[in-house]
Structure formats: structure tokens, C-alpha cells
Design a protein around this nucleic acid. Structure first.
Lengths: 235, 235
DNA sequence: CAGTGGTCTAGACCACGGA
DNA sequence: CCGTGGTCTAGACCACTGG
């Protein structure tokens, strides 16, 4: 028999509601006394559950106002900084959106059954108006119906909010792997550098609640004027 | 007037004892009721302070045993993984230990006054017996008296434990910046690759308690068979 | 077994935000 | 002003560790 603490059960219940869009990002949750009454536990137990979700980054507390679902800023997940430490929001130009049979790597990363389809997005991202990142994104076709028929022009700059608003798929965590690489011919063309220029390769799997993988992404970045920061800069 | 919560004051007090080596790594702290009595607060307040320090990675709890000062494993801070996800401990060969006037970058990173001396350590690190990392380390001469007179042969494989045990300087946090680079002539020689081979450059400032910078390090890594992982793999 | 941390309760008072 | 979360208390019972 498993012995699961009350606050874990409550976390799980709240997680379910968050995942199913029961509350929208930015929306206030019921107050702690309300939740305590609903789950028939003490306020302290509710606090413990909420605290955990806050430290996971899913909720934000505001004294005097309430506890709200986190609104993910475009910055939240972007780890590239300018040499002087300033943050800069990338502009994106989507090159192609296509649908394909998932490759072995895509199936592994996204935990897809063999034979499943994925949607691939190819884009170039600009920092300070200069092309700095060449990026390929893969997501399951099942989770994003109709995405493949979108025009490249209509794909927004930052896709995580878009995933959430258009397809109800929230991105709340990611795991990244970094390597050094060199520019291929096509990357060199898009990034205006020579073939063989060193690039920082960031392979990223983004997760929704409960660690379900949603998106697999490879970003190949020019780091002549930027760097990847861990942990992200405070400012 | 500042209003500082009790648990923050207690954290600060405990932090002071940790920094001054009042308790050794691995050693058990007094129990929660003992600490509560000593600080004249309730056990809950002590728990809150300890919880915070645990989540900072400074303490570890063991139900039924007690709360202990974290012993930092050599793995704790090493973020390079093999392609298959396995962790591997690097072997190190120290090439040179020297003392120099701190450069501008070193002064900035280590928050040193101008004119201060630093000790520089040059080494090559091996993964699976192959040279994979070329590393330069800088620390303040003031904090590590006598280090410069050590033989390169006697410098241990992993230096953070060494800093703590020999000089009473604990490393409890770090900030890393990553870039793509290419091998210089001397790096190419030591790493057995060609000049221009892409390298992952990790610039790292390591901190002791209360965010005092202790060590500045640049690691230039071959990532043909390894990657940098964020967050670190669970296993 | 005694002592530890882990969970949970019920209450108090405070600081802040918005109406 | 009221309702929110933030801090703090005092106590209960449980689960685990060690001798």
C-alpha cells in the first residue's frame, strides 16, 4: 500500500485542473481558506501544496491579492543573454512548416509510438536584427491539429504562449542539452557566416504538466555576441 | 526600519556557522527541538529555516537520523554527461600552477581590488581516458595561501572538496555562461584534435555562502561524445 | 526503545491590496 | 474596510533510524 501525503494528493488534484485549463493563466485561484474547505484539510496543508507548485513555477502568490496561475513571459525560458548581461527578445522568421513521419530521435524525445506523424517548423531567429539562431522544432501532429496548415507568416514570435492559447497545451518545464557544433552550409547561409563557424547547439525537450514531453527543439546559435546562462541572470 | 522574519534571521545565523566551519560536511546539526530552544522560537520556525537551506542544497535531511551538512560529491557540480546519459568522473592532469597579477576579467569575476594577486591553475581533464577538457582556474591568492607552492602532482582530481578541507572555503553555488568556440593551437595539441575543432566553452564563477565569488574557471570541452545538461540528469 | 524528521491541525497576529 | 497571503505558535500523531 502506498501512503501518499495529503498535500501530494492536493497537488495532484490542482495539477489536473491546471492541465485541463480549469483556470486560465493569470487567473486567481480560490483563496486558501476556500481550498481548505473544499478539500477538507487545514489551511496549512493547502499552503504546503501551493508552495510546492509555486516553487515549480506554476503558480505565483501576491500578498493581499491571491494566488494566480503563472503567465509565462516570452523571457521565462529564453536563456541567451547579450555579452553585457542584458536580455533581448528574439524576432523569428519561420521558413517552413511541414508534416512528416516521426524520426527515431523524435519518437524517443516526444515518447511517440512508431509511425506517428510530427509537425516540423524551421525558423531563423534574430537578436538585435541580426540572424543568430537556426532552429528546428518538432511537435506531435496529434496534439496540434491544424498547425501544419498554418501559414509560416502567422506563426507568432514565441510559440509557448501560442501552444497554450490555441491548443490548450501549457509548457511548464524543459530539459536542455548543449554541445558545440559548426555551421552547415545552409546554416551558414541563413546566419550570414562561413561554413564551419562554431555554433552552440541547444537540444531542448519542453514538457507540460506531469512531465509529458510536448516539443523537441534544436537551436543552433551564434555566440559571438551572446552566451547561454545557467542559472538565468536575475535581472 | 527593516522587518526581517525570524526564519530569515535564523537562516542567516546558521549560514554564518556553516561558513565558519562550525559544523563539518556530513556532520549532524542539533535536532529541531534543540535549535528551537536555542533560538527561542517554535519548532515550525526552525523547520522553515532548515527547509530553505535544504532547498539551497546546503543541508540534507534524513528522517529518523537528523539534519546534516551537505557533503558535495564530485558529481554535484559536474554537468557533462555521456551521450547515453551516464555520468562519468573526469580524471585531471594539472599542467601548471602559477601566481600572477589579476587581470581585469579576473578582478571583475572574483570581485578583487586592483593590484591583487591570483593563482592560476592549468589542467587537462580526461573522460574515459581521453582528453576532453582544457581548463584554466583562477582563485584569489589571499584566500588560498600556500596553494601556489604546491606541486601540480599533488593537486587532487576535484578541487572543491580540496578547497573546503585544506583552506576552509566551501563552494555552494555557481553561475555558468556557455559559448561555442574553436580549439586554439595549444588546446588542439592537448586535446588531440585539429585547430578549429568546435569546443563548448563554460565560464564558471563558483561561490561560497552569501554569494562571495571564490573561483573563476574556463573549461573548454570537446562535446563529440558528451553534452552539457540543464537541469542535471536525475540519475 | 527513544529520538529524529515528516505530516497535519487550529489557531493567532501581521502586512498588503483593492474596493 | 475586508479578504488575501505571510509569519509564527503549540501541539498531535506517524515513519524512520539507530542502538
Amino acid at each position: 500500500m502506498e501512503k501518499i501525503p495529503l498535500y501530494e494528493q492536493i497537488k495532484e488534484a490542482l495539477l489536473g485542473r491546471l492541465a485541463s485549463d480549469h483556470w486560465r493563466p493569470g487567473e486567481l485561484l480560490p483563496s486558501e481558506p476556500k481550498l481548505a474547505e473544499e478539500f477538507d484539510v487545514s489551511q496549512g496543508t493547502i499552503r504546503r501544496a501551493l508552495d510546492d507548485l509555486v516553487s515549480q513555477g506554476l503558480l505565483v502568490r501576491h500578498q493581499g491579492r491571491g494566488t494566480a496561475v503563472t503567465e509565462h513571459t516570452p523571457f521565462g525560458f529564453f536563456h541567451l543573454f547579450r555579452g553585457d548581461g542584458a536580455r533581448e527578445l528574439p524576432q523569428s522568421k519561420t521558413l517552413r512548416i511541414s508534416s512528416n513521419q516521426a524520426s527515431r530521435t523524435e519518437r524517443d524525445s516526444l515518447e511517440l509510438a512508431s509511425g506517428k506523424q510530427v509537425i516540423r517548423i524551421l525558423r531563423v531567429r534574430y537578436l538585435n536584427l541580426e540572424p543568430k539562431i537556426f532552429e528546428t522544432i518538432s511537435v506531435s501532429s496529434d496534439l496540434f491539429p491544424g498547425l501544419v496548415k498554418m501559414s509560416a507568416r502567422d506563426l507568432p514570435n514565441t510559440v509557448y504562449r501560442f501552444y497554450e492559447q490555441e491548443f490548450g497545451v501549457p509548457i511548464v518545464g524543459k530539459r536542455e542539452r548543449l554541445r558545440a557544433a559548426t555551421a552547415t552550409k545552409s546554416e551558414a547561409r541563413y546566419l550570414h557566416v562561413e561554413v564551419g563557424t562554431p555554433l552552440l547547439e541547444i537540444e531542448c525537450v519542453a514538457y507540460s504538466h506531469r512531465t509529458q514531453p510536448i516539443e523537441w527543439r534544436i537551436s543552433r546559435c551564434l555566440t559571438d555576441e551572446h552566451y547561454y546562462c545557467n542559472p538565468p541572470e536575475s535581472a
